[in-house]
Amino acid sequence: MAEPREITDQSFETDVVASELPVLVDFWAPWCGPCRMVAPVVAELSDEYAGKMNFFKMNTDENPQVPSRFGIRSIPTLLIFKSGELKGTIVGFRPKSDLKKRIDEALSV
């Protein structure tokens, strides 16, 4: 299972905004229990959507700029981007089936 790569405030433009594929970013922090539940689900999804979507993680403790730019006040939060534009926001832990539905919705917009 491919663990999504950690990205930073500095790499956000190249990794996410300039990405040709749609992108999902999992915002997390080490102190957040529910984030630890989301991580393995996101890793599974990253396998299932391989070639169709890129999956990344961002530690909100170490990277204050991007979370504040998107008004993130709660984690886990998953943001979905397509052509650099925000297409979907998922706050809190959801079952995998829910996440897939939300991802597919965001991708079809």
Partner: peptide
């Protein structure tokens, strides 16, 4: 405003404030 300051989980969200 859920997820933007309205919260039911302090351990998840307090650090943002």
């Amino acid at each position: 405003l859920t997820g933007r300051g309205v919260s039911w989980c302090a351990t998840c969200d307090a650090a943002f404030f």
